[in-house]
Design a protein around this nucleic acid. Structure first.
Length: 782
DNA sequence: CATTAGAATAACACC
DNA sequence: TATTCTAATG
């Protein structure tokens, strides 16, 4: 799927071929790409628009470096955005160079590269080289402890908030002593204090979080010039992909390493910067030339991916953003379908329609020839949108795959099992201890655990030893004590096994068995229990690829992308963020409604900046499509089980009308909602003549549905249209009618929210648009 | 301590 | 709606 039909892949080049003809891999590049590839020394900024072959150029550059003898494979540092991208890149280079490419050791994400460096110099920041990397769960649990130790009400000041604050500081490479005074008011004025406490606690646990991986490296580079110099010499050439998504810490990391020789090549596209919420600074790419005076800037603008209509639509949207470096994508291609735009009555309707369209594409409809399910993707703004599609596709038996959903290693049962492994490997891992001490239930609740904590802290020993002490003193009663004794005994025994030669797979099974963890799920009668047991089996199977438990645990924390390349053809469902770097012949972009996309929260939190990032997200979405791009919105959607009506996304207004075909919405009879789409309203009405609409499959479905559910649906529709604009046309004492709750009386009004005392359903808070004046009920047809 | 019903609350994206 | 939290009960 990624950069699929690439002739580059097809050229098998042995070393001999290389020496016979110095640079055949360059022949396939266009002038801009070639320029970027051949400028080997000094700083280079490659501004690569979507689909302009930047991966190809990056690969050619590495090949060129090696072929020219500029560096050995392990002297090139390449930063990729995901571990998967690194793997794929290595493979492609391997296919070109064969064994000459072996030894490319420093290719990966900032995080995985940082771990590698940090393990070697851990002691310089007070860690041991076998430090553990915390996941979010551990982090939150730890912070909760610190917060209550600081006598702060966790209700008012949630641990999550603190976590995101600290994360933000780390992204900006701010250590506790450097947090600016402007941020001092953060977290009830005690943010920095807790940050400090958190860092201290991490050190005693010999652990660090994701942000620390980078920050510790930067600290080491800054405080130990000898170490830095060593790496500067070692990495003769540096390449960075997705530079627009680097944060301050990553920027410093890079700048420190590149300072000496300045052989750094950054590839990016400011229009595709979509990780601002994670601390990414578009500024990094915007000021590259200032950071590296004399930098060569190369623009890749020829697009090999999409049709002209798709490019024009994407350009039209992104043009509304200010402060861009500016690129103009162009293509030699002249044919192609316009983008399709369609509105639906609600989210279910949208999912149903897309399901049918997918089937149509599969049959070769829509004039694009036969298409496989692998060629089709549905890209959503927020992961909760996925459910509607999963439900629908399950019903119609359409195979799909969700990319980037809840990851394997983040599932509860996997984390629990790993906590058992962690404790067996290192009995002093208190966070693992806390996680599983009462899982399965051992009669050791809050009180018993507090006792253990106190004992351990008093003696200055890990919790496991604290438990020993409490047991010896008889500090815990009956049932709990027996369980705890067994638990401690188990850990000791497993730990002993690990010290000696052993079969780690058998041990893992043994641990899960003897701890009662497997049994716990076997006795669980919830529907997800069998799946969890299945996952545990899978976990044990994954162990086979490792020498021992330690090795496994080290790798797991970073390999977060679950790579299950199945052969079966499936439609892909994923978020827009997860779609970065991918491309598909046909792309569906559902849920283009204001509030959902652009997301209200983004706009609330980051204002204009947030909106621009959302717009870049739209740009990324559209440019994933090669041949057919379909944007849709729904007038009504369930949010937290409550129906809400929304306006079509403002981004729809920004689509250049010339490149968009407006389809007849199946649920839209006689104008109505679609007419609200400025610029497209006329088009919709033109097409939606009565004959069209009443013969459309959509109308038929509409009738089916009315049959199934009674007349409720259309009535509801009418109510919404009537009151769509109104804030609150109601006053105290008004009689109103609600579709579900029947008649009632307004007892208070707050903006558009009404308190209604229903005749039969009690009192409810209802948004005004969901009710209609009681006297109007009889006016409604159907 | 565990269980549970009912209430509160939640949801943007990820290495 | 679905999950998580709380308080009350066993």
């Amino acid at each position: 799927m990624t950069e699929s039909a690439d002739p580059f892949d097809a050229i098998p080049l042995s070393r001999r071929a290389l020496s016979a003809r110095p640079a055949p891999y360059l022949d396939d590049l266009n002038p801009a790409q070639r320029e970027a590839v051949e400028a080997l020394d000094g700083p280079v900024l490659m501004l690569a628009g979507a689909g302009t072959g930047k991966t190809k150029a990056l690969i050619a550059r590495i090949v060129h470096l090696l072929a020219m003898g500029k560096a050995r494979p392990n002297e090139i540092l390449s930063v990729t955005f995901t571990n998967k991208a690194a793997r794929e890149m290595k493979q492609r280079i391997g296919r070109i160079l064969g064994e000459a490419s072996e030894g490319i050791a420093w290719m990966g994400t900032f995080h995985s590269l940082s771990v590698k460096i940090l393990r070697r110099h851990a002691e310089l920041v007070g860690l041991k080289s076998n430090f553990t990397i915390l996941d979010t769960d551990d982090q939150i649990r730890l912070m909760k402890q610190l917060i209550s130790a600081a006598n702060i009400d966790e209700k008012r000041w949630p641990a999550r908030l603190l976590a995101s604050l600290i994360d933000g500081w780390k992204n900006r490479a701010l250590r506790p002593d450097r947090v600016p005074t402007a941020d001092a008011s953060a977290y009830n004025n005690r943010g920095t204090e807790l940050y400090e406490a958190y860092q201290a606690r991490l050190l005693t646990l010999n652990a660090c979080d994701f942000g620390d991986l980078l920050l510790h490296c930067v600290t080491i580079f800054q405080t130990h010039p000898d170490v830095l110099a060593q790496y500067q010499r070692w990495f003769r050439y540096i390449l960075v992909d997705e530079y627009q998504d680097t944060n301050v810490a990553q920027y410093l990391w890079l700048r420190l390493l590149a300072q000496g020789h300045r052989n750094i090549c950054c590839v990016g596209d400011d229009d595709q910067s979509i990780y601002g919420w994670r601390g990414a600074e578009v500024g990094n790419i915007l000021r590259f030339e200032a950071d590296f005076p004399g930098a060569k800037v190369v623009r890749l603008e020829q697009n090999y991916r999409s049709t002209p209509h798709i490019l024009a639509a994407a350009s039209g949207v992104i043009a509304s953003n200010a402060g861009r470096l500016g690129k103009t994508l162009w293509t030699e291609e002249t044919r192609g379908e316009k983008l399709r735009l369609i509105g639906h009555w609600d989210g279910e309707e949208e999912a149903r329609w897309i399901g049918e369209e997918v089937e149509a594409l599969q049959r070769g409809g829509r004039g694009l020839g036969l298409m496989g399910l692998d060629d089709i993707a549905i890209l959503v703004r927020a992961s909760h949108q996925m459910r509607a599609f999963e439900d629908r596709f399950l019903t119609i038996g359409l195979p799909y795959r969700v990319i980037g959903g809840p990851r394997f290693y983040e599932r509860q049962e996997i984390r629990d099992a790993m906590a058992y492994f962690r404790l067996a490997v290192s009995p002093e891992d208190d966070l693992a201890f806390e996680r599983i001490i009462n899982t399965p239930k051992r009669g050791l609740g809050d009180k018993a655990q507090a006792d253990l904590q106190r004992a351990a802290r008093l003696a200055g020993v890990p919790l496991l030893d604290g438990a020993r002490e409490v047991l010896a003193k008889g500090g815990i009663g009956g049932k709990g004590a027996a369980h705890l004794r067994a638990f401690v005994g188990n850990i000791d025994r497993w730990h002993k096994v690990i010290q000696a030669p052993h079969n780690h797979i058998e041990l893992a099974e043994q641990i899960l068995d003897e701890s009662g963890y497997t049994e716990m799920w076997q006795n669980d009668k919830t529907p997800e229990a069998p799946g969890r047991l299945e996952n545990l089996k899978e976990l044990v199977k994954a162990l086979e690829q490792f020498e021992n438990l330690q090795g496994f645990l080290e790798h797991v924390s970073l390999i977060m992308d679950n790579e299950t390349e199945e052969a079966a053809e499936k439609v892909s469902i994923m978020t827009l963020h997860a779609a970065k770097g991918l491309e598909f012949p046909a792309v569906f972009l559902p849920g283009w409604e204001d509030g959902l996309f652009p997301s209200q929260r983004s706009m609330d939190e980051s204002g204009q900046k947030g909106l621009e990032e959302e717009r870049r997200l739209a740009y990324v979405g559209i440019t994933r499509a090669e041949r057919l791009c379909t944007i849709s919105f729904a007038s009504n959607r369930r949010v937290y089980g409550q129906w809400q009506s929304q306006m079509p996304s403002r981004f729809i207004d920004e689509l250049p009308a010339d490149h968009v075909a407006v389809l007849t919405p199946p649920g839209l009879y006689g104008g109505g909602y679609g007419a609200a789409v400025s610029g497209f309203g006329a088009a919709i009405e033109q097409r939606a003549t009565k004959a069209d609409v009443y013969n459309s499959p959509g109308w038929k479905r509409m009738q089916d549905r009315a049959g199934q559910r009674g007349v409720a649906q259309p009535q509801e529709a009418r109510g919404i249209v009537i009151d769509a604009q109104a804030i609150s046309p109601y006053g105290l004492g008004d009689r109103v009618f609600h579709q579900k709750f029947g008649y009632g009386e307004v007892i208070s009004v707050e903006g558009d929210k009404l308190d209604i005392e229903f005749d039969h359903a009690g009192s409810k808070k209802i948004v005004a648009r969901w009710v209609m004046p009681a006297h109007q009920v009889s006016d409604v047809p159907f």
